[in-house]
Design a protein around this nucleic acid. Structure first.
Lengths: 147, 147
DNA sequence: CTACTTGCAAATGCTTTGCAGGAGA
DNA sequence: TCTCCTGCAAAGCATTTGCAAGTAG
């Protein structure tokens, strides 16, 4: 799922409006960077692409975008947090996490697998009192570049 | 899978010896704490239980235990890293992550589900060049206590 | 005796916050 | 004008490292 930039911006604008926030230049730039990056990006990743941006504003804007449901935090195996556009924008998917370089990439599994997994999880959690909201399925290993 | 403490200590001792490291008092205490905790514990969790322990030594020992294959890092949704005994000691399982309090709990799915999942992942990754080493399946939601 | 571990303190690195100035509605 | 956003600097936190002293083998 590789959405058109224009569509994304329009949708993001709408979400921010719903959250009573503005779609400012700084926020638009973050969305563009994430869209271009194509996989979860850490703050250092983004700062390398746009050294002019201010860290604190980026963090603040990322937080705002997150609470508006536009981006989501991804936590890999190293400590730096990564961000990517929300699944409602780029589709449900999972992550390949490289233990060597820490890079995170996206991948998808067939819908059938996804459904079977959901059903199995629901069954496994019945009676635990835990209210499942979503799941996270990551594959840990070594990426093609590091192998 | 709730192993006997004695068995665990013996196995841990063996693993450390294989890694040419000693099973010192500090390391033994960490293993005991993790065993007692029963779910992934953050450093603050452990320090609360044993305020006398030194942070730096705990971190160092945890790192050593990790490279000896005795404990493994768990990364939840908040930034603090959590640790638990390796799956080779307490069995393969998954995590319930509470978005409210950050607590992480263990749960298991039927072996059949696990196998189907493995097969599906293998199929989905064929030809990507990514060398899968393990997977991570977490359920994100709200725990019984916070609900 | 020698190597490894410990404890304390200082340093790192990512992330957050305070505050004054600036831009948009 | 009033509110929200930005930039800069300082603060926070979990984690790491340097170094001298302690301890096991």
């Amino acid at each position: 799922m590789r959405p058109e930039a224009d569509d994304v911006h329009e949708l993001v604008g709408r979400r921010l409006r719903e959250a009573e926030q503005m779609y400012t230049k700084g926020r638009r730039e973050l969305v563009e960077l994430l869209l271009a990056f194509g996989r979860p990006a850490s703050m250092p990743d983004l700062l390398e692409l746009r050294p002019k941006l201010t860290q604190s504003s980026m963090y603040r804007n990322m937080t705002d975008l997150e609470s508006a449901g536009v981006v989501q935090k991804i936590i890999g195996t190293d400590e730096r947090t990564r961000f990517e556009l929300a699944e409602t924008l780029i589709g449900h998917h999972h992550h390949l996490i490289c233990t060597e370089c820490g890079a995170v990439d996206d991948f998808e599994v067939p819908a059938r697998t996804e459904q079977a997994l959901e059903a199995d999880l629901q069954r496994a959690l019945a009676g635990t009192g835990f209210r499942a909201h979503s799941h996270r399925l990551d594959v840990i290993g070594v990426c093609a570049r590091c192998a």
